[in-house]
Amino acid sequence: MRVTQGTFSFLPDFTDQQIHEQVQYCIDNGWAVSIEYTDDPHPRNTYWEMWGHPMFDNPDAAAVVYELNECRKVYGSYYIRIIAFDSSPGWESIRLSFIVNRPSEEPGFKLSRTEVKGRNIQYSITPYSSDKPQGSRYK
């Protein structure tokens, strides 16, 4: 199951050239772009690991694509996303976030139903991949 989230989630995966152009748009708007990765695809997993610092002072998107490729060398089988922070409202807010790298195989999620008081049903989802310990989920 293909995990989607963030901006452009309905589009096919971007090429590096397309990533470059999107990132350039963010930079030209004065947003700080950073790269994050994770191997836990749960939708409520909001805080991913940071790859380096947010890039505040790079005028060109090539720097981000360069770092992305560095990150792919190490975490090529993880989810990697690019996020753009906008500091202008006074609170650091994410303006844009999109997935730029994903595992070759995404096993999807397990839906479990629990019957609780009054025959109500509680639903929860668990990624099949998170059965394995962190770091050995995707190859």
Binding site: D57, N58, P59, D60, A61, A62, Y66
Partner: peptide, 8 residues
């Protein structure tokens, strides 16, 4: 430094 100089 190299990243800062990219594009320039």
């Amino acid at each position: 430094v190299l990243k800062k100089a990219m594009g320039g």
